[in-house]
Design a protein around this nucleic acid. Structure first.
Lengths: 121, 121, 121, 121
DNA sequence: GTGGTCTAGACCACC
DNA sequence: GTGGTCTAGACCACG
């Protein structure tokens, strides 16, 4: 499990975990069927409470990214590569739409946005 | 004062106010020297607590966007148009750098980002 | 608040609460804008843990039936009577579809189902 | 043995087996005296643990639907067709009574229930 | 061994 | 005052 927790971040821990793991799934790093570590082990590894890990796992299940089998563990849900790509694009487009409207609220044109994006990339 | 408050938003009210007013200043809508309404009046107008307005005003002062004159009120700090433009660009670039690194974390190239940005703009 | 908890039920407590309150909303007993009791008070009233109440409230919010305003409380979401009726019918139809397929799995015809339903109603 | 197990279902596996086999008995598909497969064979066939199969068999025996003969195996209990029909009707009526009271709790009349049942059947 | 539920109690941000 | 988060620790069902 490759998750970095920042205790200085304003985001709650369980959400940091959720975002990092879901990003890993949508990037294809965690393949379908992959078994997430047991919550107890993950809690020990990350040095946080079991409850906090569980909350993150619950969010992942609610998003349909993993499915839980009581007594067995939690597994990345079965997706085709196309579905993964689709979900990833949906997520990014939704995020980008919010970002774009933020930029536009400051009067930036598309060309200006592209130019600035080129700078910071 | 032109501020819209959403009670369903997850953002705290004082932050909603702070963001909207600072955006207005950086867009040049609120000119240097402009007098913000007294907190009591603002609170009544927005139908929120005085404490909340005060917190927003404090955030604005802490950012250097306004300055308080005891007994007189709060005024937009004196900036030249160039300074405004500079601050606006700094803010947007900082935001955009974060957005770009998010997009990159999903493996998107600059061209792909530009193309998607074109779609959602 | 009118909720009855059965500790003998196989359903978890938080789900019992969720189901009863959502039923009350869909029956129109809890009108839009109605303020749910604070979780601490509800917990004391029902003699259960705050956490358990919170879990029920979270499910209600996730279903879009209530919305939480931090520092203010939880309120029944604004719905038109038509929306309420629509949601209620959707819920019942979905439930009934499952029931019907169960009856059918025992070879019952529609007429037999109707006749038996008449008996038990 | 014709049993389908869903690992994504929230129902425990042993209960899924119990429900499917008891339904088969009550539908008359498994006749009186029919011999259930040995638990080891069933476990292998369904790719689950022997313990789980044993638990399902125990539930069936507790319901009086099968009886175990040590060293010989498990057999569907001797019922007359009338008894089967009776048990089936009892089960369905009990289930339907619960469903009906659920529908009634939303204010539905018998006619409305019948009409909706017609739709989803 | 696994996850599911419930508990008591703490600290924080917001209003 | 409110809800939001995190903690430690218990008991249970399932496999």
């Amino acid at each position: 499990m490759n998750v970095a927790i920042s205790s200085t971040s304003e985001k709650p821990i369980y959400q940091q975990i959720f975002e990092q793991i879901s990003a890993q799934i949508l990037r294809g790093e965690l393949a379908s069927g992959y078994s997430l570590p047991p919550i107890r082990q993950a809690a020990q590894e990350l040095r946080i409470s079991i409850i906090t890990v569980k909350k993150a796992w619950e969010e992942l299940e609610r998003s349909g990214l993993i499915h839980t089998v009581t007594g067995k563990g939690c597994f990345v849900a079965p997706f085709t590569p196309d579905e993964i790509r689709q979900m990833r694009n949906d997520l990014i487009l939704k995020q980008m739409a919010g970002d774009a409207s933020y930029y536009k609220s400051f009067g930036l044109t598309l060309d200006e946005i592209v130019e600035m994006m080129r700078k910071v990339y």
